[in-house]
Every structure is written in structure tokens, then in C-alpha cells.
Design a protein around this nucleic acid. Structure first.
Lengths: 327, 327
DNA sequence: CTGAAAGCGCTAACAA
DNA sequence: TTGTTAGCGCTTTCAG
């Protein structure tokens, strides 16, 4: 592998001059620079980013850590962070934590050792408070409003739920059920509260029998819609905790030859990739992954700028309504 | 950030000794080592991988370059490469080439500058021959049987097609159409040839009217099944170029109240994530992403071992049949 | 078992 | 405008 010393030798200058020339410093004779450039190309010179990082104490690398890259949702986000990073002249290292706090800790360690300039992280649930500050590195978190001194970014669930309920009401549905996710999920709680509030704003009554919690799984949606439709006064629409649950509902309707949205309107949350398939065509509230990714990178850049000061940014990204054929 | 020099000072030894101790070399007094370890922990020492890479001329980083990380297919593969790399003590840098040869070239340059130890690449179609050898780096390619001196790995399309056709025949279908992808796709050609050959082996006639090419898109499947079903003697099953096309076929059947698989059996290729959804439940030939990823990493490791010799591995991974409710 | 010293490839003062 | 020099933090001879 050829180095600036090799070039210096051939060019008959000191290697400091080569460094200056190649880095576009103004204090180099134009003629010399040209000679060096030509030589560099001719000799196939490739700068060594490692050596540069060592002296500059900056790697131009940022880490993106998510629980599961193969999850389309995280895949989209890492992708958009990656693109934004590109434009800002950074390279990304993408890590899978596999929803495992131990692995997460391990990966964090590796990233620190690699001397990344900053980290964008979707933490596993059980990350030890203070562990991230101790990294002593610029960090931006996804969906993790902890009392930490760190910046985070997340989707505005309240706004999204309002979007969903408003949409159903505007379409003429009056008896809207809520088939929620697990009760302890903070985002689920926000959605539920907003659902209730929005109904009231429309002067619609909130019927507790139309509200339920459950795992974010298809079977869960399937079973709960079955129960709801057997009620004496069943709902005419459902707002689901996420698209997976909504798919379970849809599945039930199809299997029982019921018409959607005539017999029941369905709206989900997330806009997973299958939702837009013609075979599914599920109305949903879309979490804008591209925006989430870009915003996260911008936030990290600001955090890096201010470091070691913490910027403590609280960023809420607005979701979008995707009205498709189930409403 | 604290360094081995800081530790050396506090421990009252030279920093060479600290390095030896921390790296588990045998030639260090056990007592000294313990003292150094304790100190390292106490002082919160984090090794600097950059400095180590510089002197070792090894970064322990490998690059994974795919056209689109947000494509579930590539997401799965990068994920599995990443896991395998983990186990082998490597970190991965994941790059998006965006199907763009220029961007691909640019990213390759960056990876070279980062001095990655090796590259796993799914090339864009138009990569310049020889460009990869010129990198002078261990490389393993996905789906790219070029006359290059490089190793590659791909799915055994012939085997997969045989699986599909055998399955349909075993289920009693006799008039099997082929709704292929674009004619120029090498994998499509292999699949078509195998389809024909397998039919003949089963003493079934090959009807040219049942064979067509087209883009890998839903509409393409939709339109072509419509044409096929209007024939005087329509097929009783279709083997599709990929799952997307198969989804178009399925869409047509659903819209026209036709029964699958009673009126028509459908089998796809790829096993995209939606295929396994209960709402879709598409029979298909699955490309085992986890295996592809692992094999690719193993191949790269071997390539790195032999480097600068080229190992020229030709690895074919066997797909699997996923029989679901459309056949 | 330990220390001294060289050097990985580069940047950035400081001189000249 | 250019050269000299001192590191960045670490590993690795080579002596002792």
C-alpha cells in the first residue's frame, strides 16, 4: 500500500508538503500541488483513514444501533440515517443489539473502542440508567424518554392517534373500538388517551367495553375482534394498536366473509411494508422512517457540535395518515 | 480519554508491559497483570482500536455493500453476515449503493480508505470488470458470476425451480404455466430452463403459450394471469418468477372470486416477508438469507486467509420449499 | 519477566 | 512556500 512518503520521495518534496497538497491547503505552490496530484493518481494512492483518525481524534464514523436490522422498520431508519450521514461526510457502522441488553452493552463497548464520533441508539428496554452518559460520547436516542440527560427523538403518538380517530369520524363511523397493544407500553397509553379525548371532542361517548389491551400480535387482533363483533351493539370501526394487530382483524373479516370497510372499518398504526400491498391495503398512521432517520442524524450532528455539552433535544416527528381501502 | 501510558504511570511499569498484560501475553508476572487489570478497570480504560489497527495493519472491520438495506431481502442478509462476523470477532460496516454504480464506486473508495479487511458485495449490474481486483482487497460477491477472478456465492436457482415444479406435479397439477421475470435475467433463464426440463422429466408437455417474460412487478403478474386464464385451455397452476409477480396473480384471483389453489395453484420464488402472512400465505421457494449471509462471511474469511491469493470460491446455496395454502 | 525504542501513516505546529 | 519535528496510542522487536 502506497503512502504519502512514497509520493514525497518521487516528487522530491517532504511528505508534509504532500499532506498539505492532498488536503487542499492553500499554502502550496500550484505547480507542486499538480505534480503531487498527478503522482498520487498515477501511483494509485489511497489515503489511510485510520492514520488520519488517530491524529485528528475524529473517525468520521457514527454508530447506528438498533434491536434488529432485518425488521423493515429499523431497516428503513438505518437506511435513512445512512443516507443523511453520507451527505454530511460520515460513514455509519450499523449494529444489531438483538433486543438483548448484554449484547447491546457489548456493542456499545466496541463502538467506543472504534472511537466513533457519535451514536444513534434505539435502546433495549432494560438499559441501565446512566450507562449512556458514562460513554462520554454524543448520543441520540430513539423512543426512549428517560430522565437521562440525553437527546431523543420519537413519533408524536398523540398527533397520530388524533389523525386516525378524526379520519374515522369524518368517514361517518360513530362506534369506534380501540384494540390496543400491551398496557404498559408508553406509546400505547398515549394513543389510548388521545383516542378517548378525540372521541369526546367529537361528542361521541367512550364505551369502556370497546377498549382492550393485548400483545402486538395478529392472533390478539383476531381474537379481540371476534369478541367485539359478538357484542349486542358491536363497533362499526376499530383503531388498532399497530398494523400487526390490524392484520389479525382483517384476517378475521376475510375468513368470515365480512366486508371491509362496510361491515367494519379498520385502521392501524406504523405502516409496515405489507400494509400497502394491494392484497392488504390497510389504512394506517405512517411513522415517517425517512424523516425519523434524517432528524436523528441532524440531532446527533448538533449534539456532536456542542459536545461535551449535552443538547438535550426533545424531537417529536409527526406521523402521516395513509387512507387505504379498509376505512 | 485514558491511555496505556496513564496506566503505566500509575502502575509504575513501562507502557509496553501494560500492553502485554492487557493483551493476555504469557510473559507477564501474574501479580503485575492483576494490578494492571484492576487499574485499567478503575480508571475506565478503553482500548483505542484505531491505534491498534494502525500498527497491526488490520482493522477487524469488514464491509457489506448492498444496493438497498431497506429491502427486506438485503436487510436479512446483512443481518446474518453481521451476526456471523460478530462471532468471528469482526465488526461490519454496511453500505448502501442505491443501485447506482457511481455511488458504489465512491463507497468502495471509502471502504478502502477505512482499510476494511475485506468486502462482501452485491454489485450493481454495471460494475467495470477488473475494478474489484484493482481494490487489492479480499472480496466475495453475491449473485455475480462474472469472469472475474473473484469468489462468489449465490442461490441454486436450478435446484429451487426443480423443487417448485416437482411440488406442483406431486400435488396433481399437470398444466403448469411459467410467469417469468425479465428475459435477460440470468437467474430467470436458469429457472425457465429447469422448469422445462423438469416438466419433461415428468413426461409433461411444454406449451410455449404458457411461458412468458415480464418485469418483476405485481401488475405484470396480474395482467399475465388474466391473459392465461382467457385461453381456451388455461393452466391449472403457475410458477412465478418471484413472489412479487405471484402476489399480482393472487390479487387477480381474489378480485375475481376465484379459488386458490382449487381454480389455480400458485407458487413464487424468494419468500419475501409478506408471503408468510396468513392473509397471503403464498407457497414459494425460499432463499435462505441466513445461510447466504453466513456462507458469504465464511467465504470471505477464507479469502482473507489466503490473500493475496484469490480463492475463487463458487458457492451455491440450496433454497427451500415453503408449501403454504396457494398450492 | 520487563524496559527502551522504533514505527504504523498521517497532521500540525514551528522554523526556515 | 517548504522542511523539520513531534506526536496520535498502540504493538513489537531487541536487549537486559
Amino acid at each position: 500500500m502506497i503512502t504519502i512518503k512514497d509520493i514525497a520521495e518521487r516528487a522530491g518534496v517532504s511528505y508534509a508538503t504532500v499532506s498539505r497538497a492532498l488536503n487542499g491547503r492553500p499554502d502550496v505552490n500550484e505547480e507542486t500541488r499538480q505534480r503531487i496530484f498527478d503522482l498520487a493518481r498515477e501511483m494509485g494512492y489511497q489515503p489511510n483513514a485510520i492514520a488520519r483518525s488517530l491524529v485528528k481524534k475524529k473517525s468520521q464514523i457514527i454508530a447506528v444501533m438498533v434491536p434488529d436490522v432485518s425488521n423493515p422498520f429499523f431497516a428503513d431508519i438505518t437506511m435513512s440515517v445512512n443516507e443523511a450521514a453520507d451527505e454530511a461526510g460520515y460513514t455509519t457502522m450499523i449494529c444489531n443489539t438483538g433486543w438483548d441488553p448484554v449484547k447491546e452493552q457489548e456493542k456499545l463497548r466496541i463502538m467506543v473502542e472504534q472511537r466513533v464520533d457519535g451514536i444513534i441508539l434505539k435502546p433495549t428496554a432494560f438499559i441501565r440508567p446512566g450507562a449512556l452518559e458514562a460513554l462520554n460520547l454524543p448520543v441520540v436516542l430513539f423512543w426512549h424518554a428517560m430522565p437521562d440527560d440525553l437527546s431523543y427523538i420519537e413519533v408524536d403518538h398523540a398527533y397520530g392517534s388524533r389523525l386516525a380517530v378524526d379520519h374515522l369520524v369524518a368517514r361517518g363511523y360513530r362506534r369506534i373500538a380501540y384494540i390496543g397493544g400491551i398496557e404498559t407500553s408508553p406509546s400505547n397509553q398515549i394513543r389510548l388517551m388521545t383516542y378517548q379525548k378525540t372521541l369526546q371532542e367529537h361528542a361521541l361517548s367512550v364505551d369502556a367495553r370497546l377498549i382492550s389491551y393485548g400483545p402486538f400480535r395478529q392472533e390478539s387482533g383476531y381474537q379481540r375482534i371476534e369478541a367485539l363483533l359478538r357484542m349486542p351493539h358491536p363497533p362499526d370501526a376499530v383503531f388498532c394498536g399497530n398494523d400487526i394487530i390490524a392484520m389479525g382483524v382483517l384476517q378475521y373479516m376475510r375468513e368470515h366473509q365480512l366486508q371491509v370497510p362496510e361491515d367494519l372499518a379498520i385502521i392501524g398504526f406504523d405502516d409496515i411494508s405489507c400494509a400497502s400491498l394491494p392484497l392488504v391495503s390497510l389504512s394506517t398512521v405512517s411513522q415517517p422512517r425517512d424523516k425519523l432517520g434524517r432528524e436523528a442524524l441532524q440531532a446527533l450532528l448538533r449534539e456532536m457540535d456542542a459536545f461535551p455539552q449535552r443538547t438535550r433535544q426533545r424531537i417529536l416527528v409527526e406521523p402521516e395518515l395513509k387512507a387505504r381501502s379498509t376505512t
